[in-house]
């Protein structure tokens, strides 16, 4: 099954991290990303670079910043193809051990859409 791992970063923790620590974490995560079950991944720029368009009645409303205001923001996305939820959870847990903060949300892909792309 294909899953999207939505990587949420804790803004405060990220801001406090030194470059050496960031480098170590990036290297360790890269090792996971190189595995065969990782279909694709992407990193997003910081939440302060976000712009949101929302529908309010009959008109679109443009706002600066992320759509959902929270201390944790979406920092990236990893697509994996593994046997089942337990396998996906194992990947997420491993990543969380490396990251040491934030959260990962595991979402199964709607298969019809995945087929069209795959």
């Amino acid at each position: 099954m294909r899953y999207a791992l939505l990587i949420y970063n804790d803004e405060q923790v990220m801001a406090q991290r030194g470059s050496a620590e960031r480098g170590r974490i990036t290297d360790e995560i890269r090792e996971v990303l190189d595995r065969s079950y990782v279909l694709d991944w992407m990193r997003l720029k910081g939440a302060d670079s976000a712009t949101s368009v929302a529908e309010s009645g009959s008109r679109s409303l443009l706002t600066d910043g992320p759509f959902l205001d929270s201390k944790d923001y979406l920092g990236g996305l990893i697509l994996i193809d593994v046997a089942d939820l337990d396998a996906a959870l194992a990947v997420a847990r491993e990543l969380q051990e490396i990251r040491g903060s934030g959260a990962i949300e595991i979402r199964p892909l709607l298969e019809a859409r995945a087929d069209r792309n795959g």
């Binding site: 099954m1 899953y3 046997a83 089942d84 939820l85 337990d86 996906a88 595991i106 199964p108």
Partner: peptide, 14 residues
């Protein structure tokens, strides 16, 4: 069904 929860006995560590 949708989340792919396995129908299996969990691995020893779980």
């Amino acid at each position: 069904r949708d989340a792919g929860i396995p129908f299996s006995v969990p691995a020893a560590e779980l």
